[in-house]
């Protein structure tokens, strides 16, 4: 058993564990961390496959950028929200299991039954232009130049699309400070709202403040965290 095999078996098992962890975690944040774990392992495999550029990109772009983007969005959506694992669609699990296993089984058996591929190695190809990165650069800027330019157009379009989707049109003029202060004095809550986590066990943004009588105050939470599941946990923690 050579070094590559050792690395492969370790990282492969880790990658599979990471993937399985992703689909069985109830909380999305945990899933994201499992994915990141699996991707780092894949990056290691890329090294053994003589693809250092891909491995670096995998870590920087995927694990670094893409997964962090996922985490940002999770923060917006509610970091603590966890799925219920009760299936609502009738027969979905049964069908998914059947077709998933059928697909996977057929795919794997097909691969397993092929003759062993020859391992040509990339030493020659990497050596032509003085290294893996130089070789890839040569291919990208020569043979795949058009595709490369098209991906740039794709990225710009995607960026614009994301802006358009995230954009919210302002229909009313921005309120001035005078208007805001007047508005506030017309409500029962003249003083600022309590900060989240005041007098609570911890000061996370989604943990409600405790009022002097010990009850949690929904008013202390940002809009999207009010009346959601985790508040019950928090209040339970507090009251217990």
């Amino acid at each position: 058993m050579n070094g590559e095999s050792v690395v492969f078996w370790i990282t492969a098992i880790f990658a599979v564990v990471g993937a399985l962890g992703m689909i069985v975690s109830r909380k999305a944040v945990h899933s994201a961390l499992w994915v990141a774990f699996a991707m780092v392992n894949l990056a290691v495999l890329y090294f053994t496959l003589q693809a250092p550029f891909l491995a670096t990109t995998q870590i920087v772009v995927y694990t670094g950028a893409v997964m962090m983007l996922f985490l940002f969005v999770l923060m917006i959506v509610g970091v603590d929200s966890s799925d219920s694992l009760i299936e609502t669609l009738k027969g979905q699990r049964l069908l998914a299991t059947f077709f998933g296993l059928a697909f996977g089984g057929l795919l794997l058996s097909a691969i397993a039954s092929t003759v062993a591929l020859r391992n040509n190695g990339l030493d020659v190809a990497n050596g032509d232009y003085g290294g893996n990165i130089q070789g890839i650069a040569h291919l990208i800027f020569n043979r795949y130049l058009l595709a490369f330019e098209v991906t740039s157009a794709l990225l710009i379009t995607a960026a614009l699309g994301a802006m358009v989707l995230a954009h919210r049109e302002r229909w009313t003029p921005r309120k001035t400070q005078i208007e805001l202060s007047r508005e506030r004095t017309h409500t029962s809550q003249v003083t600022p709202l309590p900060n989240p986590g005041v007098l609570a066990r911890h000061n996370a943004v989604d943990t409600p403040a405790l009022l002097p009588d010990g009850s949690p105050s929904q008013a202390s939470l940002p809009q999207q965290f009010r009346e959601t599941a985790q508040n019950d946990d928090a209040s339970k923690e507090v009251t217990s």
Binding site: V16, M22, V73, D83, E87, Q92, L108, T114
Partner: peptide
């Protein structure tokens, strides 16, 4: 080391991903 092993790993990961798509309800997952 037989490269088929890499392909089998790829197949396993792909299948797990497919399971995730059809079984999870959270859009982000």
């Amino acid at each position: 080391m037989n490269p088929n092993n890499y392909l089998i790993l790829a197949g396993i990961l792909f299948t797990i991903g497919a399971f995730g798509v059809v079984l999870r309800r959270n859009a982000i997952i």
